[in-house]
């Protein structure tokens, strides 16, 4: 019974599409507060950044890791990004870079509104969850040179 109730609660939590995107407040060009108050894990973030199925950051960006080959050059290199951007600035650029530059090529990783012709498999889901955004921010914050 308790298990069934837990499953029901989980299902309810997953149901509304809007709940999949965490609320956030933009101050200047940053979102200073972590999404949903979550703590990021740099180790998990490093794996998300390298994952070709989800974030696929390396299709456009390079990271300072000699083991990685065939990285993209559409976006700026991520080496030293922590010296250029605060975690809050990184957070907004991950959530939705078009908030800073309407023409930005980089996809919005935590947005579901105002997107066109989204594949049904991805409808109502952001590319990355709030936890994954925080993990990536934590990883990027370690790239200090």
């Amino acid at each position: 019974m308790r298990q069934a109730l837990a499953a029901l609660l989980l299902a309810l939590a997953a149901a509304p599409a809007a709940a999949q995107v965490a609320p956030f407040v933009v101050t200047g060009d940053a979102v200073s507060a972590p999404l949903d108050g979550l703590a990021g894990d740099a180790g998990r973030g490093a794996r998300i950044v390298r994952n070709r199925e989800t974030a696929n950051c390396l299709i456009c960006h390079t990271i300072p890791d000699p083991r990685e080959t065939f990285m993209g050059e559409v976006g700026p290199p991520l080496a030293g990004v922590a010296l250029r951007l605060t975690p809050g600035q990184m957070r907004l650029r991950l959530i939705d870079p078009t908030r800073i530059n309407r023409e930005a090529v980089m996809p919005a990783y935590h947005r579901i509104a105002d997107l066109l012709r989204v594949d049904p498999r991805w409808q109502g889901r952001p590319v990355l969850t709030a936890q994954e955004i925080e993990d990536v921010v934590a990883y990027l914050a370690t790239l200090r040179e």
Binding site: I59, F70, M71, G72, E73, V74, L115, D119
Partner: peptide, 28 residues
């Protein structure tokens, strides 16, 4: 010219603005 999909990209954002740059191992 219309941005589309979950990744919110138009054809031109890659095939005009980033021609010749590398996307992973491929050249756009």
């Amino acid at each position: 010219e219309t941005r589309q999909g979950q990744l919110n990209l138009s054809c031109g954002q890659c095939h005009d603005e980033n021609v010749g740059r590398r996307l992973r191992g491929d050249v756009i």
